[in-house]
Amino acid sequence: MIRFNHISKSYNNNDACIIKNVSLEIETGETFVLLGSSGCGKTTLLKMINRLVEPSTGNIEINGKDVRKYQPEYLRRTMGYVFQQVGLFPHMTVEQNVSIVMQLLKQPTKIRKARAHALLDLMDLDPKIYAERFPNELSGGQAQRVGVARALAIDPNILLMDEPFGAIDAITRNELQETMLKIRKQIHKTVVFVTHDIFEAFRISDRIAIMHQGGIQQIGTKHDILNYPKTNFVRQLIASATLMQDKG
């Protein structure tokens, strides 16, 4: 369980407060989506979990232990992290990219290779074709599949996904979401997923936190949010989404 206790974040002066007193709990094994428009603080919140960003006030606990008690590097290695910009290492093959964290943890080469190939399989990439390729030989969707495989390499309990499919075209995004749903059934992980796409949120989430201007508007399942919107902002969001869907 990941627990945010009264988290606020401001840079230098208090005027520009980007997170305002956020408290929430993410249950072990659930896929929890942070949904909001850009600049609402959702990525900042995500980055606090593995200490890429430190809160100004408040604290975060994982299974009851304050994250500040961990070495940042150690903490990050125990979690998977998928980036919007993918960030594959251009000088390494797909296989090397997937096994890099295992290498940091000094796991034997044989195990690394087997695991990398299994993960590529899981992400619907044939290792025979892709293992030896370099990132610049992959399409955007393929690259992000490798990105997810890399995040899963050390079999983390927590997977952090920062708008992972945000920069990918709609069709490929759809395929990736399907793969996500598929692997969710196979691996049991706590996933924290940041997106600004309400359909993506509805599709893959167990629960959603809707954020606006650094604060939480509502936390709930897709069902809760659609049927019992708590604030005006949530109502507007649903309305505009419905409108878009009708048009589409």
């Binding site: 593995n50 890429l52 990050r76 992290y81 980036f83 993918v86 960030g87 594959l88 964290v101």
Partner: peptide, 13 residues
Amino acid sequence: PKETIEAAIGLGF
């Protein structure tokens, strides 16, 4: 590339 560095930090290098 900025994203490469970010990835390395985020993965716990």
